[in-house]
Each structure stands twice: as structure tokens, then as C-alpha cells.
Nucleic acid binder design. Structure first.
Length: 470
DNA sequence: TCTTGAAGGACCC
DNA sequence: CGCCAGGGTCCTTCAAGA
């Protein structure tokens, strides 16, 4: 029984004056537009979100933490004012040296790709329920939406948005419960294909894969129809460590071949998953490939190029938030004098400042990233990357009832112990994480002499710091 | 002085 | 009416030990 006849997203009239506070709007304003959200009235959507959020404890927390960030930024500004000429000059000199060194070692012999499913969870669900295809769909619940399809995004519904707000933005929004077992199985199908191209491929998450295509491309150039030119005979690929010199395949030639290969991978994945599309980024390292993966979303691919000019002209105009690792706080800390967000080129032109303000490690990382250099995120990680921790958390209605809290803790410990037993894991440090009704996060931990894993042990350790603290 | 542990945060999907 | 996740990693800061 369809009730409302073909409703459409909010049209583009300017929204009238509102009572939602500007501060609230500033917090929830869309930092950047995700794909599929081009023709909507952002003002209207922001208005609805601000109205609904205005008086929530969650918003109060965000405003508070935002003020704290502002204070920190102000302190940084003062620090900059007070810095003397000498310090500034030497910071600039250090930066100049670093830039020169990085540029001198820019490589053109490696090719990385990041491949990402488009609206993964939602795509899987729609594939299995085709009648949802042209409806606005959100995977998640009233508490939180983890993925929205492109129809829903036209109303402003997006991932990481609480479900009730999604519903207010789009009354026809269809909610689908996530089914992680299903998504894991689909991801595994894709990963099997990825491994054919890079056996050491790593997964950033269920829907995201990092592939170093260098070896595969060389092999293909040698075996394939490339005419055999530039093929140094007698190279032993037994010790293949990803960096093979002596082959002429570099830069743009690498990129061209990579484009074909990635197209092939994506087609195979689409076929094997019965129609799921992916987007991909290709570049000289994972940082650039990752940023590039966002460019032609959905169902497309983009290659950054290898030369300094190509890389910098790609990066320079991007807002800093596009750089992996730069979040809300760093964006604010590096905002321009007028408060507007900086682009990557400003990160670069103000690199000496950053060196005075942040720890050397942070400043380095920022500089390398703004030159498109850092081997971002997933690098080969040397050994097999062991998982560092395992957790189980649940949000529930606020309560002060100790029996109830105790029971919740017991259940969490039981379910965590079960998971740990299934995976044959144990740990030495047990951390209890608590969220208060005003969204403050607290952690307390307790370390055992030897690794523990049983529910009772976890529970005892989790309760211990609670009784000691508050 | 260099490590280590604990607590808190920033960030990512 | 009221509803803002859950799984991680890595970094920084501070205090205490070795």
C-alpha cells in the first residue's frame, strides 16, 4: 500500500530563517559532499538536522569538545606568535631540506591500487532484494545508519547518521538490518580475485582492499603483448620483493597498464559478486591510490599519475580532509586565518608553521602527505599484522542501577569470552570502557600477569578498576 | 635517559 | 516521545621504574 505518491527530495528554494542555533549548524554542516548528493538543498537538510539535534546531550558534547579544540587552536596560535625569528627560520630550513630530500627520492617504479565497493552493505542488500533498487535504503537501525544507497543520499541521508534523523529527512526510508556474515562472505569472494593480482593484498575493511600491482604489471608486460621490448632477460623473480629494477616499465606506462588491469579486476569482481560495483584509485603509493579512489565514485577509477607535476596538481586543490589521517581536529588546527578550511597546497606552504606547532613526527607526516609521499595507512607492515585487541561494546539506556549494570557487564564479558575462545585469543590487559549519559568516555584497565580469556576472568578484571576508581 | 603502563584522543570504516 | 554505533589502530602525555 504505497501511501505517498512519488515524493521527491527537497527542492532548491532558499530555506527561511531558522531557530536552530548557528553553532549547532556549524557542527553538523556537511564537511564535504559525498557522491550522489549534488542536487539537493543543503540548507534545508542542515536545517532539519540542526532542529532535531539542537537539544540533545550528544550535541552538547560535540559543542563542548568543539570549544576545547578551539582553545587548543588558540594556544597554538599564541605559540606561533611567540616563536622567535630564529626558530621560524630554522623550521623553514628544515622543511626546505625535507622537501628536497623527498622530491629527490620520488619513485616512479611502483604501482598501488585501492579498490572499494560502492555503498557496500546497501549494495549487497539491494542485490538480494531487487525491489529495493529504486527506493531510499539505509542499512542499520534507528540508532545508527551504516550505509545509505544513492537514492537515500539525495535526501541527505548518509552513513554514520542516526536512523531517526535519516527518517526525518526521508519518510520513505527503508531500513535493513545489517547481516555481517553475508558481507564477509561477499568480501571473501572479491579478495580471492584480488589475491591473484597481489598475493600480499591487505584489507582495510570489509569493503576496501589495498593492492600492490607492481609485480603483476611487470609480469604482464613481460608475458603479454608488449612486444617484449625492455624485457631484460634472465631476471630471477624468485626473490620478488616488489621492487624490481631493470625493467623499463615506469611512470605513465605503468599507469596505463594498471588502468587496464584494474578495469579487469573490477569487471571480474562485479561478475563474481553478481553485479556489485567498485571504485578504484591508482597511483605510485597507497596514500595517493586511496585519495584517488574517491574521485570517480561510484563505479569508476582514477589514476593520479607519477610525476611530481601530476601528483601535486592532483593534490594541491583538495581540501585537507581528503587526506587520510586528517580529521575534524587537524582540519580546524590548520584552517586558514579567515576560518575556512585549508587546501593541501596551504598545508604545504605553511609546513614550517606546522613544524613549530606539532611534534616532529606529526609535522613530518603532514608534510609527506601534502607532497603525496607518505606510504599511507596499509603498508606491508613487515610481519603478519597481528591483531592488537578485541572488544565488545553495547550502548544502552542510561541507568544507575548497579544490578543492571552488573548484568550488562556479565553479558558483554560472556560474549567477548566466546569470541576469544572461538579465535583462540587471550590477552593480558582488560580494559573497561564506559560512556556516561552525556557521552563522556572513560576507560579503566587492569593487567594480569598472564593472559586471560575466560568470561569470569574478564569480568573480575573489568570490575576491579571500577571499584578502585569511582 | 630510556622504557613501560595507563588514560585519553584522533581517526578510519 | 525519544532515538547519535561498534569494531579497530595509532599517537600523545604523564608518571613511575629500570
Amino acid at each position: 500500500m504505497p501511501r505517498s505518491p512519488s515524493p521527491s527530495p527537497p527542492a532548491g528554494q532558499p530555506s527561511t530563517a531558522s531557530d536552530a542555533g548557528d553553532a549547532v549548524k556549524a557542527i553538523y554542516v556537511f564537511a564535504n559532499e559525498k557522491g550522489g548528493m549534488t542536487d539537493i538543498n543543503r540548507g534545508k537538510i542542515n536545517e532539519i538536522i540542526a532542529q532535531l539535534s539542537q537539544s540533545s546531550a550528544y550535541t552538547a558534547k560535540l559543542l563542548k569538545s568543539d570549544r576545547r579544540v578551539d582553545e587548543t587552536v588558540a594556544l597554538l596560535q599564541q605559540k606561533l606568535q611567540r616563536s622567535d625569528e630564529g626558530a621560524r627560520r630554522s623550521a623553514a630550513a628544515v622543511v626546505a631540506r625535507q622537501v628536497a630530500a623527498l622530491e629527490a627520492s620520488r619513485r616512479a617504479d611502483r604501482c598501488c591500487a585501492v579498490i572499494d565497493f560502492d555503498m557496500f552493505y546497501a549494495a549487497v542488500e539491494i542485490r538480494d532484494r531487487p525491489e529495493l533498487a529504486d527506493k531510499p535504503v539505509a542499512v542499520g537501525g534507528i540508532g545508527m545508519i551504516s550505509t545509505a544507497n544513492y537514492v537515500a543520499r539525495r535526501w541527505g541521508v548518509r552513513s554514520a547518521m542516526p536512523g531517526f534523523i535519516g527518517q526525518a529527512l526521508c519518510r520513505q526510508l527503508v531500513f535493513v538490518r545489517p547481516d555481517f556474515a553475508k558481507y564477509t562472505a561477499v568480501a571473501e569472494v572479491a579478495r580471492a580475485i584480488f589475491r591473484e593480482y597481489d598475493p600480499k593484498m591487505t584489507a582495510g575493511s570489509l569493503d576496501e582492499a589495498y593492492l600492490d600491482l607492481t609485480d603483476h604489471l611487470h609480469k604482464r608486460a613481460r608475458d603479454g603483448g608488449g612486444g617484449g621490448a625492455g624485457d631484460d632477460s634472465g631476471d630471477c623473480d624468485g626473490g620478488g620483493e616488489g621492487e624490481r629494477r631493470g625493467t623499463a616499465l615506469t611512470g605513465e606506462a605503468l599507469g596505463e597498464l594498471a588502468g587496464e588491469v584494474v578495469g579487469e579486476i573490477r569487471a571480474r569482481v562485479k561478475e563474481a559478486t553478481r553485479g556489485l560495483t567498485t571504485s578504484a584509485g591508482i597511483g605510485p603509493n597507497f596514500l595517493l591510490a586511496k585519495i584517488a579512489a574517491d574521485v570517480r565514485k561510484p563505479d569508476g577509477q582514477f589514476c593520479t599519475g607519477w610525476s611530481r607535476e601530476a601528483v601535486l596538481s592532483f593534490l594541491a586543490p583538495l581540501p585537507v580532509r581528503k587526506v587520510p589521517g586528517v580529521g575534524r581536529v587537524m582540519e580546524k588546527a590548520r584552517a586558514r586565518k579567515d576560518g575556512a578550511a585549508s587546501a593541501v597546497c596551504e598545508l604545504l606552504s605553511r609546513a614550517a608553521e606546522a613544524r613549530l606547532l606539532f611534534t616532529p613526527g606529526s609535522a613530518d607526516s603532514l608534510l609527506r602527505k601534502s607532497l603525496g609521499w607518505e606510504e599511507g595507512g596499509r603498508e606491508e607492515a613487515a610481519g603478519e599484522a597481528l591483531q592488537k585487541g578485541i572488544s565488545c561494546e553495547r550502548t544502552f539506556r542510561p541507568t544507575g542501577d548497579e544490578a543492571e549494570l552488573g548484568e550488562t557487564l556479565r553479558r558483554l564479558c560472556a560474549s567477548l569470552a566466546e569470541e576469544m575462545a572461538a579465535r583462540q585469543l587471550r590477552g593480558r590487559t582488560v580494559t573497561l570502557k564506559m560512556k556516561t549519559s552525556d557521552f563522556d568516555l572513560l576507560t579503566r584497565d587492569s593487567s594480569a600477569a598472564r593472559p586471560v580469556g575466560a568470561a569470569e576472568e574478564l569480568q573480575a578484571r573489568a570490575v576491579m578498576p571500577l571499584t578502585v576508581a569511582d
